[in-house]
Amino acid sequence: MTHDAKPPAQPEAPLEPGQYGQFLKEHGIATNRLADSCGIETIAIQAEHLPSALKLLRNSQEVKLDLLITVSGVDNNETFDSVYHLWSYSHTNELVIKVMIKKTDVPEGKLPMVPSISNFWSAANWHERETYDLVGIRYSGHPYLRRILNPWDWEGHPLRRDYKQPVDGLNDKNPHSFR
């Protein structure tokens, strides 16, 4: 990949489903193709279809995306994204799945809910805890959803756009700080 290659712009017309989108469509799961990220097929999926789609992609011999590279979270301006990177050893191929939850759909004072995949893909366990800790996405059905990096009694989710740093004697945020 050359460095001056521009990232693909969001086209007006909906994109044709790619290899994996086509595969999921054949199995009755609707997906929405997004602009490729670094040449990797990227699809958006409804939250309720996520576990079945991941089981299909992992188990079928045809695609065999059998490595979960990472689960991460993004706070976009309008949505919270839960992002899954899958890798196939046998086909050396990669897929990015995004579950996008509109901020307007999240009730006041509640966290966005995404079904947990850690009961059938245990690699996701700590990744989901980290995403919960830093971005504040609640994975329903997770066996032990507790903060993993920050202290247990931490307030807020630091990688959110509206996060405010704590004000106390440990930083310079306080104008009356003794240092």
Binding site: V167, D168, L170, N174, P175, H176, F178
Partner: peptide, 14 residues
């Protein structure tokens, strides 16, 4: 940890 009052910005100890 020296806690700070959010309203006044002063240390709680003070």
């Amino acid at each position: 940890v020296r806690y700070v009052d959010y309203d006044t910005g002063k240390l709680v100890d003070d």
